[in-house]
């Protein structure tokens, strides 16, 4: 692991207290060129995490607060008639940024949601017949309130599949909370953060992730996991091939973060709850929040070949 990457982790952990696992997962997602969905109660530090990450990595940051009256143009941008020149000029929306925090994405209407998700998938925006590329790197952290809250449009499964991972932050433990309460205001801390990495270094790391070796034995394991979700009666439907690719990419990034040049089963197990929890649904219980538990069950059910 490079010095820069270590510094990134250290600096983030100084601001976000008691969540080393979530920080690593978020970084994993970033290195694997995936997008992250954070689902939790308001006020547990979702926004702070996004802020800290962008500041530490030196990425251009935009926050989009989703509301129910939002239109796609509010995100993508709009062409406005110029009286002086007599033609239309495109005013880029907030999505033209390296790191996007899509806050409370489930408050927007499906139409707006899908505009965002398509941009995420294509890494480009098509508006009024013209295709415009998004900046690179392009990383979306979307947050979602638990779906049982009033006035939300929960993301359908097909849309959820476009997020590489979904993580939950949860309440901090006692020590972390004490530090949080007694320490300096987080907003001040964020303002003082210095970038620990050049964008070129980030690209370099992303390229390294792809080179992390995956042995046939490990592919056997990944396939066994995928097969189990498809054959088991426990799940409404199995993991898609895209989920399989995401799992492997995330495991590679996780291995790189752990300083290894090859993926081992533990890497897969570490990222599996993040990668699978929003894609799996129990046949018995439709509560989306128990995805994590389902993923744990899945790990324990599949023997490492």
């Amino acid at each position: 692991m490079t010095e820069a990457l270590k510094n990134v982790i250290n600096q983030t952990e100084q601001v976000i207290l008691g969540k080393p696992q979530q920080i690593r997962l978020a970084l994993t997602c970033l290195l694997a060129r995936g997008h992250l969905l954070i689902e939790d109660m308001p006020g547990v530090g979702k926004t702070t995490l996004a802020h800290v990450l962008s500041a530490t990595l030196g990425l251009q940051f935009q926050r989009i607060q989703f509301t129910s009256d939002m239109l796609p143009a509010d995100i993508l941008g709009v062409s406005i008639y110029q009286r002086e020149s007599g033609d239309f000029k495109f005013h880029a929306g907030p999505i033209f940024s390296q790191m996007i925090l899509a806050d409370e994405v489930n408050r927007a209407t499906p139409k707006t949601q899908s505009a965002l998700l398509e941009a995420m998938e294509e890494h480009q925006v098509t508006s009024e017949g013209e295709t415009r590329p998004l900046p690179s790197p392009f990383f979306v952290i979307a947050t979602q309130n638990p779906t049982n809250q009033i006035g939300t449009f929960p993301l359908p499964e097909s849309q959820l599949d476009r997020f590489m991972m979904r993580i939950q932050l949860g309440y901090p433990d006692a020590i972390a909370e004490r530090g949080l309460l007694s320490g300096v205001d987080r907003r001040d801390l964020i303002a003082e953060l210095k970038p620990q990495m050049q964008t070129s270094e980030l690209f370099e790391l992303q390229a390294q992730v792809r080179k992390v070796f995956v042995s046939p034995a490990l592919l056997d394991y990944v396939q066994a996991i995928l097969r189990h979700t498809r054959e088991s009666a426990r799940f409404v439907h199995g993991l898609s091939p895209r989920a399989g690719l995401s799992l492997l990419a995330a495991a590679r990034a996780w291995a790189l973060l752990a300083g290894r040049d090859a993926v081992i089963p533990e890497d897969v197990q570490a990222v599996l709850p993040g990668v699978a929890s929003h894609r799996l649904q129990s046949v018995h219980d439709t509560q989306a929040s128990d995805g994590e538990k389902l993923a744990r069950e899945l790990i324990e059910a599949v023997a490492i070949p």
Binding site: E266, Q269, I304
Partner: peptide, 9 residues
């Protein structure tokens, strides 16, 4: 060893 336990764990 548990069936799902990797070598490092």
């Amino acid at each position: 060893r548990k069936v799902h336990e990797g070598p490092q764990d």
